[in-house]
Design a protein around this nucleic acid. Sequence first.
DNA 1: GCCAACGTTGGC
DNA 2: GCCAACGTTGGC
Length: 154
Amino acid sequence: MVQHWLVKSEPHVYPWEQLVKDGQTHWDGVRNYQARNTMRDDMKLDDIVLFYHSNTKPPHVAGIAKVCREGYPDHTAQDPSSHYFDAKASPENPRWIMVDIAPHRALLSMVTLPQMKANSALDGMPLLAKGSRLSVQPVSEEHYAEVCRMGGLA
DNA sequence: GCCAACGTTGGC
DNA sequence: GCCAACGTTGGC
């Protein structure tokens, strides 16, 4: 069964438009254990991923991606010149994991955080939970379908 | 294993 | 820029 996820990116760091240009990308730099475990254990090839822009006005879902490579070591953790370098990572113990994602579907319009908060059909969505900071999180099939309905599939 | 200090996230 | 929420670190 295909599963659904949501990943956050700050648009000034890596926007949806860049993913469309690139065709696919390494989802590197995740340094949170819960998010890592999700990528390592749960995200499967062809799973669907809502691409969310955080730290922008308004925050919003910008597009729909899919997993095109399952979890493997995040090499930036072992690169001293990387912003994401982690001295505790090594080839034997890479410590951090990433997946690859690619664009899947475009939305006719962005789905903003205020719109989602106002939609009771999305009650219980982890993104909307108070204090939610997870950068990789699950989305139920029903919530996914509702976000698609709100944005309109291109 | 507790918990205070600190750093980060991310909406507002 | 503020600050609440949360995660991690490290002394004890």
